[in-house]
């Protein structure tokens, strides 16, 4: 009888121990995931620096694909590489102020915007960007991704032979997203910066008469 009681006690203790271990394991697993999905302020500072680089990279691709003096292969490559910087489904929204003061907006998928930029009806195109960009603080969204906005200024000049026929200065507000991506080769997850939707607003336009 005593053996029976001792055995039951032992089984009960082992069960409690196992249950406790399981609970601990779950807790520590959750903690690990939480650690993984939160970026520290130091990490965010690093990502802010990387955002500047991504934006500069994008600007460089725009300059290349707009430049009709560059070889077609290089411009095609710039278009392809520029697209890789963006989140899937990113759009370009361009606003125009109409003669009556109303605002007209056009939305284009980023693929179409870049393709269009490559084939503008000018003999020569010069695109310049200011050296400075403003990047806001990152804020975490309910999906666990981090969001920010970078603002840049682009100067565009379109030529017909040697004559300038169109110039504009546009402010571009670019959505920045830090998301976790899976690196299939190394079988690990890591944070990566993507560019998202872009809002383009003309600040100055000049159309020269031909």
């Amino acid at each position: 009888m005593l053996r029976k009681i001792l055995l039951s006690g032992l089984i009960f203790s082992v069960c409690i121990l196992l249950a406790a271990q399981t609970k601990t394991a779950v807790t520590s697993k959750q903690a690990k995931i939480t650690d993984e999905i939160n970026l520290s302020p130091a990490d965010i500072e690093v990502f802010k620096e990387q955002t500047k680089q991504k934006v500069e990279e994008f600007q460089q691709y725009i300059v290349t694909l707009g430049n009709k003096d560059e070889p077609v292969e290089k411009r095609n490559m710039a278009e392809k590489e520029a697209l890789k910087l963006f989140y899937k489904g990113a759009q370009m929204e361009i606003s125009f102020v109409m003669a009556d003061g109303s605002i007209q907006k056009i939305n284009r998928p980023m693929e179409k915007y870049l393709a269009r930029l490559k084939s503008l009806p000018y003999t020569k195109v010069i695109i310049k960007f200011y050296d400075i960009a403003y990047i806001s603080e990152f804020t975490k969204g309910p999906d666990g991704k981090y969001y920010s906005t970078a603002t840049i200024i682009q100067e565009f000049t379109g030529f017909s032979n040697d004559d300038i026929i169109y110039t504009d200065v546009t402010k571009k507000d670019i959505e920045i997203i830090i998301d976790i991506v899976e690196d299939k080769f190394f079988q690990e997850k890591r944070w990566k910066i993507f560019l998202g939707d872009i809002k383009a607003t003309e600040t100055r336009t000049t159309t020269a008469s031909l």
Partner: peptide
């Protein structure tokens, strides 16, 4: 001049 304006301009609501 444009860059001067860009610096002074309040570019985002965040700013």
């Amino acid at each position: 001049a444009g860059e001067e304006i860009f610096i002074a301009r309040i570019k985002q609501f965040n700013e």
